[in-house]
Structure formats: structure tokens, C-alpha cells
Design a protein around this nucleic acid. Structure first.
Length: 109
DNA sequence: AATGTGACGGACC
DNA sequence: TGGTCCGCCACAT
């Protein structure tokens, strides 16, 4: 477990219901700009017991990155269940659903 | 040590 | 809007 991994997981857990974050965004917030692929790797290799809201993490173009038949449907269902509008094109409106983390002294030690 | 592989992302056309 | 190409970086072989 690297510090980056810990931070990234903590961040992902903070994504509110009905909002989404991108791999690159998580990497950036975790202090590793450009580490989008590592975020993807950690999600892919993390176990279910981590309880991460992985379905709220999408690609920087607002699209679900999972291949059809390999989790895509599950992620789509869960996002829609939270009120996220996913149009037929698959492009989620980031301007509307992208998570904007609030840094407060209370939640940001 | 060298090489292949992604749940990525930016640049281009 | 959508499709390629390419740089990226930790991991697995």
C-alpha cells in the first residue's frame, strides 16, 4: 500500500452520491497529477471489501470506461439509480455531475 | 533487464 | 461528435 493508494481510496470514498469524479481528478487530488492510470489500476485491483463507490469514477471525457459485459452495465445502473443522467451517447455531463470537493479545516487535516 | 499491458488523457483530424 | 495516435507509469512476465 503506497501513500498515494491510501489517499486515492480516501478521496473516492468522499465522492457524494449522485456525483462523479474522473480518474485524473482523483490522481490530481491525491497529489499525483497524471496518475490517472494508477487510479484505474487501483480500482481494478481493489477488492469488494474496500467498499469503494467505484461506479462514481469515470473517464475524463465523462464516459464509463468499462467494456460492455465487464461491469459497464452495473456501473450504468448504479449511476442512474443515484440520479445521474447518462444519455444514449454515454457522455455524462461533467459540468453538472462532476464532484467539486470542498476543502474545510474540519474535513481536511 | 526488457517488454507488454491497461477501468487514462491530451492532441489532432 | 467520434476515431486514432501517442505519452504516460506501475505492474506482471
Amino acid at each position: 500500500m503506497t501513500p498515494f493508494t491510501e489517499k486515492a481510496k480516501a478521496l473516492i470514498k468522499r465522492i457524494p452520491r449522485g456525483r462523479v469524479a474522473t480518474y485524473g481528478q482523483i490522481a490530481f487530488l491525491a497529489g499525483f497529477d497524471g496518475g490517472a492510470r494508477q487510479v484505474a489500476w487501483l480500482l481494478h485491483s481493489s477488492s469488494a471489501k474496500d467498499r469503494l463507490p467505484w461506479h462514481r469514477v469515470i473517464g475524463g471525457r465523462g464516459r464509463i470506461s468499462l467494456p460492455r459485459g465487464c461491469g459497464f452495465e452495473t456501473q450504468l445502473r448504479r449511476l442512474r439509480a443515484e440520479g445521474v443522467n447518462v444519455p444514449p451517447s454515454g457522455r455524462i455531463d461533467l459540468g453538472r455531475y462532476l464532484w467539486e470537493p470542498r476543502f474545510s479545516t474540519a474535513s481536511n487535516p
